[in-house]
């Protein structure tokens, strides 16, 4: 794993302007992905994980959405300062994305082969014949049984796991250095999830590419990632290496998330929850976003927004009272 920073998101703000008010979907997110690293981005639904990924690619639905501030440095270039044409030359070829539901990521009226070939032709000036050969190679690489037959099939004829393999093949066909994976296994059967994750991990390692893996499953993070960022209500509350975060979560929210994983050895039978609900994104609570649900909250928490504090090598947390050990 290289030490060089590949992607650096600094103080990103993405707002959605709706009739109900301004939704601050992302309100000051900091992330960094090193070369060849798999970074897990964890958080509840609606905390801004997917919007972060879309902001990086410049695909926030606009209107109503707009990236309002911050910097997104990718290989040293600020993506927010790019023209639409420059962004297009980055999408797909240097940063690619795969989505949550593979069944709806492909157009149902065209064959898999046609869609793969079109995408390859979009990026490389090659003939249909050689694009087809490349598509076959990619399908072979994602361990698709009988790639030749798959090319002639329609999306509805394949299972979710197979389709996600196709999507991974398409995303990697142009050798991107960063892959944004938005809950790639959430819509799949548990039995296939691990296969897909391992496959992704292998292919990424082989290409020395990096991944921003968006998920809400801590198990997936523990199994797959090198580093983690935990998001809550539009902010990144804690980030660090997988080891340090799982061994000693410093933010009460991270700790709460871990405790929500059912533990069969505990006999009491009740599942743990974090009390309260995710705050209203139009009127988020002042100070620390998490204080209304936090068992440690004090008056300071409700007034001052905590700055990032370093609690270990590579381990940063935004909390006034980080947990020890």
């Amino acid at each position: 794993m290289g030490e060089k920073l590949l992607l650096q998101v600094e103080n990103l703000h993405t707002y959605f302007y709706t009739l109900q008010g301004v939704i601050k979907a992302i309100d000051g997110v900091n992330l960094c992905v090193r070369e060849g690293e798999i970074l897990g981005l964890v958080g509840e639904s609606g905390c801004g994980k997917s919007v972060t990924a879309l902001s990086i690619l410049g695909l926030v639905p606009s209107p109503p959405g707009r990236v309002e501030g911050g910097r997104i440095l990718f290989e040293g270039e600020d993506l927010l300062a790019k023209t639409p044409a420059e962004m297009r030359s980055i999408r797909g070829s240097r940063i690619a994305m795969i989505f949550q539901e593979p069944m709806s990521s492909l157009n149902p009226v065209f064959r898999i082969g046609d869609q793969m070939i079109e995408v390859i032709k979009l990026h490389k000036k090659v003939s249909t014949g050689s694009a087809r050969i490349q598509a076959l190679e990619m399908l072979h690489e994602v361990r698709m049984p009988d790639p030749e037959a798959v090319l002639a099939k329609y999306p509805f004829q394949l299972s979710g796991g197979m389709l996600q393999r196709v999507m991974i093949a398409m995303a990697l066909s142009c050798e991107p250095s960063l892959l944004l994976a938005d809950e790639p296994t959430t819509a799949l059967d548990v039995t296939v999830q691990a296969q897909i994750l391992n496959l992704m991990k292998d292919l990424i390692r082989k290409r020395n590419a990096a991944v921003l893996l968006i998920t809400h499953a801590l198990g997936v993070v523990a199994q797959t990632c090198d580093a983690v960022s935990v998001m809550y209500a539009g902010t990144a509350v804690e980030s660090g290496s997988v080891e340090s975060i799982f061994r000693s979560p410093a933010h009460p929210y991270t700790r709460g998330l871990m405790e929500c994983i059912p533990d069969p050895s505990r006999k009491s039978g009740k599942l743990k929850i974090i009390p309260g609900t995710v705050p209203d994104p139009v009127n988020p609570p002042p100070g620390c976003r998490f204080h209304p649900r936090c068992y440690k909250a004090t008056a300071t928490c409700s007034q001052i927004r905590p700055d990032p504090v370093r609690v270990g090598p590579d381990h940063v947390v935004c909390c006034h009272y980080p947990e020890e050990g």
Binding site: S89, A96, S104, S105, V119, H123
Partner: peptide, 19 residues
Amino acid sequence: QYVLAARSMAASTPWIIWH
């Protein structure tokens, strides 16, 4: 979503309309 996916693959507006 396949339109969003196509845009994430750098497809141009005319390309998406046509395909």
